[in-house]
Nucleic acid binder design. Structure first.
Length: 836
RNA sequence: GCCCGGGUGGCGGAAUGGCAGACGCGAUGGACUCAAAAUCCAUUGUCCGAAAGGGCGUGCGGGUUCGAGUCCCGCCCCGGGCACCA
């Protein structure tokens, strides 16, 4: 479309000027009040896509707005540049991941600049830079020295597609890899872990005070999964130690100690070490079958066979019994894979009457049940799925069949049962978490090397800090082998022990890339530091990030890890002790969908932003993203979208023509005294400032844009007609200032044409309440809630006067038809409701 | 199954318990033009009516209130998250 101004040239011009003049560079000793706004640093996958554009438009608006409000705004940018796609490309093409990645970074950076988003590029961080690697490794060593990092053999998630292990957080609910979509399997491997569970309580409690979307906080709460209960010992029948053999007991965990009288059997996980000892000769075969089945099947398979039919194959009697300490009676012990080794004690007491899984299992194995909570009337008559009694009852009720707990409610009974266990020394109150420690090892090349040496003499030896960073060599072979390519490189692999100098080998795994992103926001505050990851004092100045912006997909992964890192670094003294949370406010923008699916490279439904940069321009695309709907909502990219974007460009043309009129443009502006029309335009100007300022505060950018559009609809005819020069001038200047964060190029160029200086160095406008006040207000007159008349009134009108006016309205008189109003509700100056 | 969101014109969406549909897209008509583009003006929830005007309208059914898109109760539908965690 033909444009009113030279969009492309003007946008390039201002992008260059913001960079050359360092308009958005801030030093750490900047005297203005600090304000840190950060958009999640991206994985560099090539030129920006629409999701990036949306993200960075919101972030950039904030940066420019806060700057105009007088803050020193820290607005850094970096790249999460380690990761699998680069390595997969290397395997395919032979190009080194660094070369591949840096080319992608250049492309992404170019399109971010083309969007007109501004950053303090002096602070740029790239995860794969040796400096960043070094501090990443230093932090790892501190974690190790303080028992926050440890090496441990465990059944871990292995993704055949990615050829690496994964953290629990990277496995989706259906058991597939969040990246490749492959079915994740379990492998027993010795791996490095970070002790995130040490912070489970604080990670949970801290959520309450965060100004984050409730959805994200709920997801984190669920993931951490705190549960309160009791742990206690069940003595194995005949193994109380009285016969000279060592005593043997099974420790179980339950959140319902109040139901203990209803325990009719116990279950241990197939992987539980006690299984061998419990299993009698005649049950050995059946138990082994369950164990091997559990070992071979994925979590998905374990879950997909729920229900009585599936259960039958997945459990077996061990041949042993344990004594229920509450009743003194023996109950059989089963092995079954519905009990997980990784949670609680790996063993449970089973109470079929009050637990659905226990109920199903009991049905399948014809085990009895005893109700300990009185179910509601008719519960057992309603019939379960198999036509039997009504099934497990998990609701509230009175305790029954439980001797000294009878008659109590559940919470009281829980407390008393726990006290009883503690008094006898066989159990204790116990809090469990679903959260597991963070597995950080990855069998990949393109990541931060784990700075460890294995010495036959001294075992695990950290590489001394003075020798960091440990960098991966460039001459490696990229093969999809399932082992780190570093293992094939003898020059890297073979080293000497830092302690004894003897021959040793290096750790060849690298760190999860989520480690890189767990503290980059801290490094941004002090990226030039060569003595430490960052200076705690400087971090104190900027942190926490006032506004963090990113996608909802990081609700658990990155956002949980970063919170953990922040707490751990504070406790290690690397960061200010009081800095417990990294991100004060979090904003998660909606995703962009096309044909009902998320717009993404892998789905091949990308719409390229550069097309728009080269046609309507970045400002129009920015305006579109702000205007299309609430930022938090998902948006659909449809056949209509291009028309809306063009509408935005059209609007900018109108603004341009209004702000920079052509020499021969219309009648000469008028001077002299202000007419009522002039005053009303001036009023609209000041009211616009209020409106846009308020909408900015509440992230309601779509209504900000609407307000500006309305304003142009009002001012344009006025300016073209008999507009007063000063009033028009104030209106246009105000509009440009309000648009400056949204459409920075147009605002800057038009402002420069009008005033010669730089709009982004100007202050945010303030409205004059005296000028914004309305002269008259429309009083809505209702009869019985239906609008019957509208009257222009003084805004200061009183209750009685308003009622009188309303009752005098001919429309009201007509509708009332002589009837006496029963009630008159007067809410001056907006509304009067007459009730006949 | 549980926990969050959400359901408003042809479409995206506005609306501190107080004029439902701001703003935009699309559509229709008009001005300008030889013509087109661009620009400008007007109309645009729905039904009845020639008009003035009136009726009906925010997923469904109840309720609270002078007044409900908004609050409460019970449903339906859509989207997302979690789901052997004892």
């Amino acid at each position: 479309m033909a444009r009113a101004y030279d969009v492309i040239d003007i946008e390039k011009k201002w992008q260059r000027r913001w960079a050359d003049e360092g308009t958005y560079q801030v030093d750490n000793d900047d005297p203005r009040p600090p304000w840190y706004v950060l958009t999640m640093y991206p994985y560099p996958s090539g030129p920006a896509h629409m999701g990036h554009v949306r993200n960075y438009t919101f972030g950039d608006l904030l940066v420019r707005h806060r700057t105009m409000l007088g803050n020193a705004v820290l607005s850094p940018f970096g790249f999460d540049s380690f990761g699998l796609p680069a390595e997969n490309a290397a395997i395919k093409t032979g190009t080194h991941p660094r070369i591949f990645t840096e080319a992608r970074i250049a492309e992404l950076k170019e399109s971010i600049v083309s969007l007109g988003a501004v950053y303090d590029w002096r602070r740029e961080i790239r995860s794969h830079d040796p400096e960043y690697i070094k501090w990443n490794q230093v932090i790892f060593q501190r974690f190790l020295a303080n028992d926050l990092a440890y090496r441990h053999k465990a059944p871990v998630n292995w993704c055949p597609g990615c050829q690496t292990v994964l953290a629990n957080e990277q496995v989706l609910a259906d058991g597939t890899c969040e990246r490749s979509g492959d079915l994740v399997i379990k492998r027993d491997l010795e791996q490095w872990f970070f002790r995130i569970t040490q912070y489970a309580d604080e990670l949970l409690a801290g959520l309450d005070d965060l100004d984050w979307p409730e959805r994200v906080k709920t997801m984190q709460r669920n993931w951490i999964g705190r549960s309160e209960g009791a742990e206690f010992d069940l003595v194995v029948e005949g193994r109380d130690g009285s016969d000279g053999r060592a005593a043997l007991a099974l420790t179980v965990y339950t959140t319902r100690p109040d139901t203990s009288f209803g325990m009719t059997y116990a279950v241990v996980a197939p992987e539980h070490p006690i299984v061998d000892e419990l299993t009698t000769a005649d049950q050995r075969e059946a138990v082994d079958e369950v164990r091997s089945l559990a070992a071979a099947s994925s979590d998905v398979e374990r879950m997909s066979e729920s229900g009585a039919a599936g259960l039958a194959k997945r459990g077996a009697f061990t041949g042993s019994s344990v004594i229920n300490p509450f009743t003194g009676q023996p109950v059989p012990v089963y092995v079954a894979d519905y009990v997980l080794m990784g949670y609680g004690t790996g063993a449970i007491m089973a109470v079929p009457a009050e637990d659905e899984r226990d109920w199903d299992f009991a049905q399948a194995y014809r085990l009895p049940f005893v109700r300990t909570v009185q179910p509601p009337e008719g519960w057992d008559e309603r019939g379960g799925p198999d036509g039997g009694p009504g099934g497990a009852y998990t609701g509230p009720g009175e305790k029954i069949n439980s001797e000294w707990l009878n008659g109590l409610d559940i919470p009281t009974a829980k407390a008393q049962a726990t006290e009883w266990l503690e008094a006898r020394g066989i159990g204790r109150a116990k809090v469990n978490f679903r959260l597991r420690d963070w597995l950080v090892s990855r069998q990949r090349f393109w990541g931060c090397p784990i700075p460890i040496v294995y010495c036959p003499e001294h075992g695990i030896v950290p590489v001394p800090e003075a020798q960091l960073p440990v960098l991966a060599p460039d001459d490696v072979e990229f093969l999809p082998t399932g082992e780190s390519p570093l293992g094939n490189n003898l020059e890297f692999l073979e080293t000497t022990c830092p302690i004894c100098g003897g021959p040793a080998v290096r750790e060849t795994d690298t760190m999860d890339t989520f480690v890189d992103s767990s503290w980059y926001f801290l490094r941004f505050t002090d990226p030039w530091n060569t003595e430490a990851p960052f200076d705690p004092e400087i971090a104190r100045h900027w942190m926490p990030v006032r506004q963090y912006i990113g996608g909802i997909e990081h609700a658990i992964l990155h956002l949980l890890y970063a919170r953990f890192y922040t707490k751990a670094l504070a406790d290690l003294g690397l960061s200010p002790g009081e800095l417990r949370e990294p991100f004060g406010q979090l904003f998660t923008q909606g995703m962009i969908r096309m044909d009902g699916k998320k717009m993404s490279k892998s789905r091949g439904n990308l719409v390229s932003p550069s097309t728009y940069f080269n046609s309507v321009g970045a400002d129009a695309l920015r305006l579109f993203h702000l205007f299309v709907g609430p930022p938090a909502d998902d948006m659909d990219w449809t056949a209509q979208t291009d028309s809306v974007i063009e509408g935005c460009a059209r609007y900018l043309d109108r603004v341009w023509r209004l702000a920079v009129p052509r020499e021969d443009g219309g009648p000469a502006p008028r001077g002299g005294d202000l007419t009522p029309e002039d005053l009303s335009i001036r009023r609209a100007t000041h009211r616009l400032i209020d409106r846009v300022s308020r909408d900015y505060e509440r992230w309601s950018y779509n209504t900000s844009v609407a307000a500006c559009m309305e304003f142009v609809n009002l001012v344009q005819p006025y300016a073209r007609g008999d507009g007063h020069a000063e009033v028009v001038g104030e209106a246009v200047d105000t509009l440009l200032l309000l648009l400056a964060p949204m459409t920075p190029h147009l605002a800057a160029e038009a402002w420069e044409c009008r005033h010669g200086d730089h709009i982004h160095l100007r202050s945010w406008p303030e409205s004059d309440p005296a000028l914004a006040v309305e002269e008259t207000v429309t009083l809505v007159v209702q009869v019985n809630g239906k609008v019957r008349d509208r009257i222009e009134v003084d805004p200061a009108i009183g209750e009685d006067d308003a009622a009188q006016l309303a009752l005098a309205s001919p429309k009201v008189v007509e509708v009332l038809d002589g009837a006496e109003p029963r009630r008159v509700i007067s809410r001056p100056p907006r509304l009067v409701n007459v009730v006949p």
